[in-house]
Each structure stands twice: as C-alpha cells, then as structure tokens.
C-alpha cells in the first residue's frame, strides 16, 4: 500500500559559510515521507539531522536541491508562503517546550490559530478540545510554570495538533523529561499516529528512535540508512 507523499526532497544540500570556509551540513540528501508515516530521524550531533528538520519544517531553505511539500515547491516560496505552510501544515514539538511563559495553556495552544486568523471564540473552543484530547482538561488555566515537564510537553503537543497539520515535527521531545514521563509522551505520539497523524521524530537517542516505525540514520550530512523498525509496536 503506497500512501500519499507529503514530503519529497531530492538532492538537498545545505551549505553554511563560516568565514571563508564552506561547511556542508547536508549533502545531496533525498527522502520521501508519506501520509501517516511514523519516522525517526536519528543521528549524533553534527550529523545534519537538525538542519534537515529545519528544512523539512520550512524554518529554513536548502542551498541546493528540490523540496516538494504536498507537491508544492518550497524552494520558490517567499517568507510569507513559508510562514503559511508552517502555520497550516506543520506542528512543531520542541525539546524545551517553547511555550509562552505569560500565557496559560489555552492561550498557548491558541497561538497558531491566531496567525491563521480564526475568531477568538472558535480558537478557544478548539484549543480546549485539543487540550482535553492530550489529557490536560483540568489544566487549561495553568501557566507553564505551574505545570510539570510532562504537562508542558502535552501543552506543546496540543499546540502542534490544534491546526490539524500534515506533519508533526518533534525535536527531541523527551530530552528534558525523566524516563517515565518520556515514555508517557511516546505513548501519546503512538496514539496520534494511530489516529492518522504523520510524525517525524528527531532524536539522537536509540531508545527514543525505537518508538518509530521507520528509522532514518544520518551521519556527516548524509543518510546512512533508512529502514523499517523491526521492533515497532502499536501501543
């Protein structure tokens, strides 16, 4: 069964200018990710996985190569077009949560909806529903500093989900959590995948990557291997 392609990159390179030196963060990387895949992007630091994630997330553009996101050419997009893709199609989950400290859980989850121009009442309704879905129905009015790490990450996940994006990009989502809480978050991702979401997990930890269905290993700006995870379990 071939699912619909969401991400299609071909021969992507990213070069950083460091003084007079050119540093290749990515070299000729090609990759396809289809709808409702659960992919782990794995590699040690400096392997180019973060650069790749930023490009996949439309936070950054490649120096060379082709990137089609849902058949649209990202390389030719303006800053505004990229912002719209990030807003509509991509849900970010960060290692450090990146919540707005002064806003409560609902307001944080509402944030992407603000930029899609939804009315305040609809925004609130949707944000509250999403918070209930990630198990935070009783923490809506809490500010980030009143929540535990796991709860904060759930808020961040709710924020990523609320626009119903094409992919969820999670960058070391368990990196700042203890093992037990981290496992709970990974179970949540598994559920999201079962609900039909496409998930890309970026991590340097083998154990975390083992939660994904497909594992892409990177090294020195190249894809080293791209395999199905034999140990994958539906939870």
């Amino acid at each position: 069964m071939e699912s619909k392609t969401v991400i299609d990159i071909e021969n992507i390179s990213k070069i950083y200018e460091m003084g007079t030196q050119q540093v290749f963060a990515l070299r000729d990387v090609s990759l396809k990710i289809g709808e409702n895949e659960y992919v782990a992007l794995m590699g040690p630091s400096g392997s180019g996985k973060s650069t790749l994630m930023n490009i996949l997330g439309c936070l950054d553009t490649p120096t060379d190569g082709k990137y089609l996101f849902k058949d649209e050419n990202v390389k030719e997009m303006t800053d505004n077009d990229l912002a719209e893709i990030r807003n509509r199609e991509i849900g970010f989950v960060f290692q450090t949560f990146n919540l707005l400290p002064r806003a409560n859980a609902v307001k944080n989850v509402e944030l992407p909806l603000v930029y899609s121009g939804m009315s305040p009442s609809k925004r609130e309704e949707l944000a509250e529903q999403t918070l209930i879905n990630v198990g935070l129905g009783d923490r809506m009015d809490h500010k980030p500093n009143e929540l535990s790490g796991g709860q904060r990450q759930r808020v961040a996940i709710a924020r990523a989900l609320v626009t119903n994006p094409a992919i969820i990009l999670a960058d070391e989502p368990t990196g700042n959590l203890d093992t037990k809480t981290g496992d709970e978050i990974m179970i949540l991702f598994n559920k999201l995948w079962q609900n039909g979401n496409t998930i890309i997990l970026v991590t340097h930890e083998e154990e975390v990557a083992m939660h994904a269905k497909r594992i892409i290993r990177m090294r020195d700006g190249l894809i080293e291997s791209d395999t199905e995870n034999p140990h994958f379990k539906v939870k």
């Binding site: 997330g57 936070l59 800053d79 505004n80 912002a83 719209e84 990030r86 807003n87 509509r88 970010f92 990146n98 919540l99 707005l100 944030l111 992407p112 930029y115 899609s116 924020r159 626009t163």
Partner: peptide
C-alpha cells in the same frame, strides 16, 4: 527573541 522564534515557527508572518 525566543518568543519571536516561537511565533514564527507557529506561522507568524513578518507583518505579524
């Protein structure tokens, strides 16, 4: 700066 980064990653345009 961080807040701006968060907002941009959530789809805030330059104008916003």
């Amino acid at each position: 700066t961080k807040e701006i980064g968060i907002r941009k990653s959530m789809g805030a345009k330059k104008r916003s």
